[in-house]
């Protein structure tokens, strides 16, 4: 390398290092913008009251006031709400996976009279705003006697038209040879579905599970009108109760928020890959 070339190389390298550093700085600033509100929530949840009502705001609490959390835990059935939300979401997502995958298999691989009409009806249903079924849904739940029952939160959410659609598209993309070989070996449709289709579709099923988790876990209006007893609340409705009863008790409110964020964060970190994949699949099929 001549000295001129060397100088050029060094200049390029230092420029690219500088550019990288600037890139990371910008990315970090943006991350602060996205995560800042949550960090601020954690900080506020551990502050004493005299550190909350100050201006300019104090960045960090001087001592960590954990009693905000214990107070919240004693005054409200937070554990109960988390448990309710968790078991409802598990049952609803399992149900969604069952209904969506079986129907998707019937749409993608089996020929039966009326199949295409039913499928078009499903597609049309994607366009209905939730407001349309809100009132009759409430009336129906009343007729079933499911007001103030978790059944009202689980059963209506078992259907997942969009998930069915996603899975159908995915099943269509699977090669048929394996199934045909199994059929020749005498396997029935159920065996093909359980032993070939489902194992090949783990990633797509994970996507449906993740999207289903988000819609059930974050649901607010439906549980708000269905559930009356505090003990049966889901987490979002419980947070709403905190918000209306402790509207200005910021440290307790923020502690409630932090507790509500933890399960979401765990699921998100564990299944992060599938969240992104879910959006990618949504965009491709939509």
């Amino acid at each position: 390398m001549t000295s001129a070339e060397h100088r050029l190389w060094r200049r390029r390298r230092s420029r690219s290092v500088g550019r990288k550093a600037a890139g990371y700085a910008a990315l970090t600033a943006l991350a602060l913008f996205a995560l800042g509100p949550f960090l601020w929530t954690v900080s506020t949840s551990l502050k004493n009251i005299d550190e909350i009502f100050v201006f300019p705001p104090q960045l960090l609490p001087s001592t960590l006031k954990w009693s905000n959390y214990t107070r919240l835990w004693h005054e409200f059935p937070m554990a109960r709400w988390i448990f309710n939300s968790a078991y409802i979401v598990v049952l609803a997502v399992l149900g969604k996976l069952f209904l969506a995958s079986t129907a998707a298999y019937a749409f993608a691989r089996l020929r039966w009279p009326g199949r295409d009409y039913v499928f078009y009806a499903y597609l049309t249903a994607l366009m209905i705003p939730w407001e349309v079924t809100l009132i009759p849904g409430f009336v129906l739940m009343r007729q079933f006697g499911w007001i103030d029952s978790h059944l009202a939160l689980i059963v209506p959410s078992l259907g997942d038209v969009f998930g069915t659609f996603l899975l159908r598209q995915f099943f269509l993309s699977l090669p048929r040879e394996l199934e045909e070989a199994a059929r020749i070996d005498g396997a029935g449709y159920l065996a093909v579905f359980c032993r070939i289709i489902l194992p090949l579709s783990k990633s797509a099923l994970a996507v449906v599970a993740v999207l289903g988790f988000m819609s059930v876990w974050n649901a607010f209006l439906w549980p708000l009108i269905m559930i009356d007893s505090t003990n049966k609340f889901t987490l979002p409705v419980g947070l709403q109760l905190l918000n209306s009863q402790h509207g200005t008790d910021w440290s307790v409110l923020m502690a409630g928020d932090v507790i509500a964020l933890i399960p979401v964060l765990i699921v998100y970190l564990a299944a992060q890959k599938h969240f992104v994949q879910g959006i990618t699949m949504t965009a491709r099929t939509g």
């Binding site: 020929r111 209905i128 009132i135 009759p136 129906l140 078992l158």
Partner: peptide
């Protein structure tokens, strides 16, 4: 046929849910 039978059986759970919570609710609405 076996295939048609399988098709009906596989779609039934989802279709019942769909008929009650989408079609019926739409008409009811």
């Amino acid at each position: 046929t076996r295939e048609r039978m399988a098709g009906f059986l596989f779609v039934t759970p989802s279709l019942i849910q769909f008929l009650i919570f989408t079609v019926y609710l739409m008409v009811s609405s």
